[in-house]
Every structure is written in structure tokens, then in C-alpha cells.
Design a protein around this nucleic acid. Structure first.
Lengths: 192, 192
DNA sequence: CGTCAATCTTGACGATGGAAAGTATCCGCT
DNA sequence: AGCGGATACTTTCCATCGTCAAGATTGACG
């Protein structure tokens, strides 16, 4: 049982890392602690990921693939606004992954797997904007992405609750954030 | 000259840290290296900042105050869109500060100085939105902040250039990013 | 000139990620 | 069955980092 072969160390490490990151942020991630939790030595991860950066890269790839799936689902099932909301929903539901996915300073951005996963993850957003037939598609794309990414980031960092004190109650609960994202996105609609 | 009293160690450390962070990200910041660069011992910063967190907090406070000044200037001198553009411009011009300002996982968010600086920095944005008299001021506020914060974040992480490959050339040069922010913001205008 | 507070240094500690070398387990082949 | 490599994990050691306690140096003020 507790032998040399764990069986699924790779996934266990990714899950452990994502969990820690969602609680303490990337800075609070100690691979030694994750390894201890799982019950392996502190260098066990190297066979699977090479380095700490490798772990984060794998997490980013996994996150992008999950995001791609979510967005595709929302794109095929609802209106375009739902794709944006799905983006925010994903971020709130997978904070450990989301916290890493766009931190290019922590990742090996030349990793082909990561490049591919990133391009795949945002395709539904891109395609949805194109389908809208906006006058300035590039700006529209950036605006939509900016709104959802910005809302997600601000909500995750707690900035939303802290700074928008007046009108907002406790907007960091998922439902409120999603509603906010939906309303903010709808302000972009007219040209579509 | 090279005695026990540096004269302005505090500012030197903040400047050094901001410079390193803008190059290597927060993760790449070594206070020992910054100290060595300046020519002081590796614990000299503790008198001024207490801890590493203290350095980052001071950087965040400084950044928020600088941002407040920039936004106030833009608010009094131009249209509202210019305030948003100033937000993006600040982020691109001060990546070291910006990278820390919203990383609540790295900061002591109970620091009164930080709380105050944060509230001050976003006031021009908030007031500008209010003055627009939008139907849903909260959503408008979030949308504007989301767009500019999202664009800034995506540009800084290089994600903008990487993922929006097709239509965009090399959009990470300041002028392009600012133009993009302006166009994206203008898509929000109609209800104002 | 002497005292005292402010500023910086020295030296040590625990924790972390990484490198090198070793050990156990599994799988295919005969 | 058993043997031989490939795979998965461990052990040990190292450099670096932030932190801490204690000490040295300086400047200002009497």
C-alpha cells in the first residue's frame, strides 16, 4: 500500500497544490507540505513535473482545459452572455487553478501544451464575439474578456467587497458576483 | 559614505523591489538580493518595514497613492474615458507596483494605511461613473473597473499578445494597449 | 564630551526548492 | 518461473530565502 508506487501521484499533487493555492495563494504553496500530506518524499514530484514551475504549468494546462469545457458548454446551451458568466463561475469554482493560469511570471510560457490549452480555452469566447458581428470585433473581444476577467480577479482577491463598499453588500458570494458579471456584460451588448 | 546610515534606505528598497518585481514578478523578489544591490545587509529592511509583507504593503500603498494622483489628473483634465485609460497607463508604467497592489494574499489587508490608500485610489473612477448617471451604477462601476483592470492585467501578463493572435499584431506596446482600452471602454458608453 | 535613540550588521535558525545517487517495484521477455 | 531493464520513489546534501536576537556604529542633543 504505502510502497514505492503511489498509483496516481501526479493527480494527487495537482489536487493538493490547487487546494493549497485556493486557500493561501501561490506564495503559500510548499511542495514539501503537499508531499507530506500525500505521504511521499519532498522530491517525488520531480519525476512527474521536473520542477516547481512544472507543477504550476501542469495546473495551468489543466485549468485551461477545464475552462474550455465550461465555456463550450455555455456557448452551446445559452446566449453569449452566459459564456462570460461561465468564465466568472469557473474562476470562483476553481480558484486554485485560476490563480495560476494567467501568471505568466510563474510559468514556462513556451510550453507547447500550455500554449495549446490556452488557445483552446478562449476560443469559445472569441468565437462568440465574432458571431455577434460587432463593429470593432477586437475591441469587443477585449472588452468582454476584460470585464469577465476583471470581475473574476477582483472578486477572488476580495477587492470587490472591500472597495465597492457603499452600494454593494457582500458581493463576493458566487451568486452576487455572477449577477454582477451578467449586468456588467449586458452593458456591452448594444452593438451586438 | 558607506557608513551605518544610508540616508534613504526606505525609498531605495522600495525602488529596488519595484524594479525587480517588474522584471521577475513578485515570486522573483529576493530581499537579500535587493539589499546586496543597495549595499546594505540583508536584514536592514526590517527596521523600516518589519517583514517582507511590510515591504509589499508599503509598495502597495505607494502604488495606490500614485494611481490616485494619475486618475485625479485625468478626471479633471479630460473626459471620463480618459480616467479609464489613465488606469491602464499607470499599470503599464508601474508594473512593479501594480503587480502587488491587488494581491491581497501577499498583503496585510488590515493595514489602515493600505485601506485608506485603496479607497483613495479608486475614488476618481467611482465618482466618474456616478457622474455619468447610469441606470445601474454598480454594474457600470464594475464594468468600467473590470475592463480597465482586465486589460491591464492581460497586457502585463503578456496574455493579450499571446491569445488574441489573429487580429492583433503586437498589442503589448503601450500605445496599442491604451488604444484598445479606449475602444473597449467606448463600448460601455451608450447608457451614460 | 557623554548619553541615548535610531540605524544598520553579524551570526544563527528553520524552511524551501533543487541536484545526485541510491533503492524498490513493476512489466515484458524468455 | 525468473531475470533484466525501465519506472517510481527515497535519501542525503546543498544554496537560498526570510526571520530573529544580539551587538556595533552613528548622529543628535544635553
Amino acid at each position: 500500500m504505502a510502497g514505492y508506487h503511489h498509483g496516481n501521484l501526479r493527480d494527487a499533487i495537482l489536487a493538493g497544490a490547487a487546494s493549497v493555492i485556493s486557500r493561501d495563494g501561490v506564495g503559500g504553496l510548499s511542495l514539501r507540505a503537499v508531499a507530506a500530506d500525500i505521504g511521499v518524499s519532498h522530491t517525488a514530484f520531480r519525476r512527474h513535473f521536473g520542477s516547481r514551475e512544472g507543477v504550476l504549468n501542469a495546473l495551468a494546462v489543466e485549468g485551461n482545459l477545464m475552462l474550455a469545457e465550461q465555456l463550450r458548454g455555455a456557448a452551446s446551451a445559452g446566449e453569449f452572455v452566459d459564456v462570460g458568466v461561465a468564465y466568472v463561475r469557473f474562476a470562483l469554482a476553481n480558484p486554485g487553478h485560476f490563480a495560476v493560469m494567467f501568471r505568466s511570471d510563474l510559468l514556462d510560457n513556451d510550453d507547447p501544451e500550455l500554449i495549446s490549452a490556452r488557445s483552446e480555452s478562449l476560443a469559445p469566447l472569441r468565437d462568440g464575439v465574432r458571431a455577434l458581428g460587432a463593429a470593432d470585433p477586437t475591441a469587443t473581444e477585449v472588452a468582454v474578456w476584460g470585464v469577465v476577467h476583471g470581475v473574476a480577479t477582483l472578486a477572488l482577491t476580495g477587492t470587490l467587497a472591500g472597495a465597492l463598499d457603499g452600494p454593494l453588500g457582500a458581493p463576493d458570494r458566487s451568486a452576487d458576483v455572477e449577477s454582477l458579471a451578467r449586468r456588467a456584460l449586458s452593458l456591452l451588448q448594444p452593438s451586438g
